[in-house]
């Protein structure tokens, strides 16, 4: 009984942290000036806003006895989704950022320095 309460409370704290990260990431995605800065906010939204609450939902599902015997199925499914998102979200963001840089689809508006562009120009010149 006490163990169920403990697990449910820990899971609720994780879900609350995830919701907070979610709202912060949404506001950041709306307010930041260009694509490469928005990438940072989207990373907060995917890892902090999807991975953490999925672990929390898995813990809540273990602790809730009113769900019946299928709660183990729910917990395992949520855990697998969390691990998949932990692998897939950074890979997708990286592929998108690489494609956006190489095809010049996203223009950096307040641009101070771009070392990658200098290196690529040097490689082409030599």
């Amino acid at each position: 009984m006490d163990f169920n309460w403990l697990i449910v409370l820990v899971g609720e704290v994780l879900v609350a942290v995830g919701v907070l990260c979610d709202v912060i990431a949404a506001i950041g995605l709306l307010r930041f000036p260009n694509f490469y800065v928005r990438l940072h906010a989207a990373t907060v939204g995917t890892i902090g806003g999807a991975f953490v609450p999925l672990i929390g939902a898995s813990l809540i599902a273990i602790g809730c006895e009113f769900l019946g015997g299928y709660r183990w199925f729910m917990a395992g499914s949520a855990l697998i989704t969390a691990i998949l998102i932990l692998i897939l979200a950074p890979a997708g963001s990286h592929a998108l950022a690489r494609a956006a840089y190489r095809s010049r689809a996203a223009i950096v508006q307040p641009k101070i320095v771009d070392h990658l562009e200098e290196d690529r120009v040097e490689d082409r010149g030599e």
Binding site: F35, A42, L96
Partner: peptide
Amino acid sequence: TIPDTVLAIDAMTY
């Protein structure tokens, strides 16, 4: 731009 839209759809769906 296009990458902004794809990034927002990604984050929203995860």
